[in-house]
Nucleic acid binder design. Structure first.
Lengths: 225, 225
DNA sequence: ACAAAAGTGTTGCTACTACACCCATGA
DNA sequence: TCATGGGTGTAGTAGCAACACTTTTGT
């Protein structure tokens, strides 16, 4: 083998929360290497991509039919030997989204697409387990100082929903009185005159997130629980 | 030009502090594109590099003769058109170091190497100004929760030295009583029985950083001023 | 009336901010 | 003794953690 060329892929760890558990979107590989293993959706950077971000969005849409989601760059992996096909540099991405309303569809070069609970992952292709743990760590940090958590929620949500997001991501329970007090104090929650009826008990008030109010906050972590 | 190949470079924003000013290490380009512009040291990822980190260290050493420094990956830039030579993906790195004791030496493909104050930069090649602003932001965040600041200091330093590092990076003055109290309270500073004589005035006590003590601290930002 | 989740206050403590003067040294 | 930077203490305040019961609704 002569001077092997270096190729670039863009892979996305797309996270969502389902029933109090953090889940990641995986595709089942149809071809070697790692045939039949689950892997992060992604693929080679293309000359037509205007940017890495665009490439990540394109591949995510192509491989899973998921589009229009929050995406940010995570970390770039380039160790020799991480892909048996040759020297491959992978720019990884993090996506935060809701599962509701999606219509997952695998591309023709995959055997399937599915959500997996991050605490119960199968054996993964390449170093993708590593990328996912990076992603988890990033979200954990991120929800403390940014409105990242709201990407997991619909437009209107209850305080309980929001608290559940924090609990799922942080992996620990939070005191509900302190949580409400602190979050309401930040001013980023806009109270609606609507409630959400979930069963035969008291309905919960709905809120929306106000980006405008968020931008008035200091840069420091303000959503720490 | 047929299907152009994608190439990967690794560029490093090496920061140090000199006389209360944050500075970055630049090389003057000898060839096109951006001939005679100043740029970050870096170069193409090589098949012999075991990892991106290694590539960054290799290029930094080759282009500036600076080695053995703290390096961490920063962000990856891959927009179309950011390099006139074709599609180039750049994995950027951040280095934190001291200038003392270095013997800067440009490689044969450069016209020179020099430190530049980040607040007085010349016009830079490519999107390197952008990379430097990423680097500045990263250090600013990093010194609040990690021992990153100590990379700018020698083994033994005074509290005043340490405070100057924070002031230079944060770009603001800090109350010295509160700074000392808070830093000493963290327990990460080991007091030495030595002093530093700097002039005809009271000598300052020297300290060292204790990694062992640092690791006992919580994950949250503890060096916030 | 009961089951279920929504919603609410207080107290003690810790940690931060703001602020100004004395100390030790060499010349 | 003077000039220079090193080094120190306090008081008021704000924000945090810990903690348990009442309210509202549908059945």
């Amino acid at each position: 083998m002569a001077s092997e060329t270096i190729r670039v892929t863009v892979d996305t760890a797309a996270l969502a929360i389902e029933q109090g558990a953090l889940e990641v979107l995986l595709v089942k590989r149809k071809y070697e290497p790692f045939k039949s293993f689950w892997a992060l959706p992604g693929g080679f950077l293309d000359e037509t991509d205007q940017s890495l971000d665009e490439a990540a969005a394109r591949e995510l849409l192509h491989e899973t039919n998921v589009g229009n989601v929050y995406l940010e760059q995570l970390y770039t992996f380039g160790d020799k030997g991480r892909d048996p096909r040759g020297r491959i540099v992978t720019v990884s991405y993090l996506a935060l989204l809701r599962q509701e309303g999606l219509e997952l569809r695998a591309s023709s070069d995959a055997r399937g697409v599915a959500w997996w609970r991050v605490n119960e992952l199968p054996e993964l292709a390449f170093d993708h387990a590593n990328i996912i743990s990076y992603a988890r760590q990033r979200v954990k940090n991120k929800i403390e100082y940014s409105p990242a958590a709201f990407n997991f929620l619909p437009e209107k949500f209850t305080l309980r929903d929001l608290q559940s997001v924090y609990e799922s991501v942080l992996g620990k329970a939070v005191d509900n009185r302190n949580f409400r007090k602190k979050f309401l104090n930040t001013g980023v929650l806009q109270e609606l005159n609507e409630t959400s009826q979930e069963g035969s008990f008291r309905p919960a008030r709905l809120y929306t997130f106000s980006l405008e109010e968020f931008e008035k906050l200091p840069d420091r972590p303000v959503f720490v629980f």
